[in-house]
């Protein structure tokens, strides 16, 4: 039988693909399947509990696991910084795309937190957030004193403000309760989660997203802008009708990637800065998986949590794809 050139080429391609695919099978595909199998068992690294198939038991337990839902909410809360960071990136990119002098210097400076992000920066921010001796609160205190803010507030409203306790406080800007999924007005304020969000924005704003926007903006056809200007469109109208639609695919890409990253995030911050505290408010889903598997040794259960996370990410991505096919015509 005669084989076509394309079919013969499969052998050649297979040769080139072999190293990568082998690694992929051993370290990605295999583990994914294995993880699913493990999530159906009560497997424990310590061997204190006899191995048993529990089938969907872990998933049922997960549904009733209040900690999981709290940590899920924490994860979502920490993602609230993403839109801000993305908007910030866009603004920076718009500012930088004006052919100013020194754009390379600005770009380098803005990118600095992103390139150095990691344990060192988290340790740095932990020091910055120290409630009394950290420079952040020192500056707040100085401002309060210099401008006699508390005196004025006291005279006007009979209240006063104190600097936030940052990484030590369970408070948050939405007033989320610590113990159940819900709101509690007393929890309103600035706390550990907000501190992590602020740090996240500082790191991400001048990072990859800004570079992506910048690249898209350099390719923006000037004719479109000029045509709109000739029609008498103001700056805002040009942005709204020309630039923003043009950036839609980039925005879409950034949003999807941020979403996927955000759902998996929070591990390093929790491990390095807070240990998941105070009162579990900085525990995210990925840190919960780590804790369950490597501190409480419940590997089966941890696998179930990781699969739930996987499914959430999968669904979110699918929805995003659907949306993009409808809205983005590129």
């Amino acid at each position: 039988m005669k084989t076509t050139r394309r079919q013969r080429n499969v052998v050649i391609a297979a040769g080139f693909l072999l190293p990568n695919l082998l690694g992929f099978l051993v370290f990605t595909a295999g583990p994914v399947a294995f993880s699913l199998v493990m999530s159906l068992s009560n497997w424990n690294i310590q061997h204190t509990v006899p191995f048993q198939w529990t089938f969907l038991r872990n998933f049922v337990d997960l549904w009733h696991d209040q900690s999981f839902w709290l940590y899920f909410v924490n994860t979502i809360y920490l993602m609230l910084g993403l839109p801000l960071a993305i908007a910030g990136s866009l603004v920076l990119a718009l500012l930088l795309s004006q052919n100013l002098r020194g754009i390379t210097i600005y770009r380098t400076l803005f990118y600095l937190p992103s390139i150095t992000s990691g344990i060192a920066l988290m340790i740095l921010w932990k020091a910055l957030y120290n409630p009394d001796f950290g420079p952040i609160n020192a500056v707040i205190n100085w401002t309060l004193q210099t401008f006699h803010i508390n005196g004025i507030l006291h005279a006007l409203f009979g209240t006063s403000v104190t600097p936030p306790q940052w990484l030590l406080a369970t408070r948050n800007l939405l007033g989320l309760d610590v113990e159940k999924v819900g709101f509690l007005p007393a929890q309103w304020g600035l706390g550990a989660r907000d501190a992590i969000i602020i740090m996240g924005i500082w790191i991400a704003v001048g990072g990859n997203n800004m570079l992506l926007y910048l690249a898209a903006l350099t390719n923006l056809p000037q004719e479109l802008v000029e045509a709109a200007q000739l029609d008498g469109a103001g700056k805002w109208a040009v942005f709204k009708n020309v630039t923003w639609p043009y950036l839609a695919p980039t925005t879409f890409f950034i949003v999807v990637m941020s979403f996927i990253g955000g759902l998996q995030g929070g591990f390093e911050q929790a491990r390095v800065m807070t240990g998941g505290g105070p009162a579990g408010t900085t525990m995210t889903m990925s840190y919960y998986i780590y804790t369950k598997a490597f501190e409480e040794f419940q590997v089966g259960y941890a696998s179930a949590v990781s699969w739930v996370l996987f499914i959430i990410i999968f669904i979110v991505t699918l929805i995003n794809w659907r949306l993009s096919n409808k809205e983005v015509n590129y």
Binding site: G30, L263, M285, S286, A293, F310
Partner: peptide, 14 residues
């Protein structure tokens, strides 16, 4: 799209 945490535990046991 596969999140790293899914493969983390099996890779560890491997």
């Amino acid at each position: 799209m596969i999140p790293g945490v899914v493969t983390m535990i099996p890779n560890y046991t491997l």
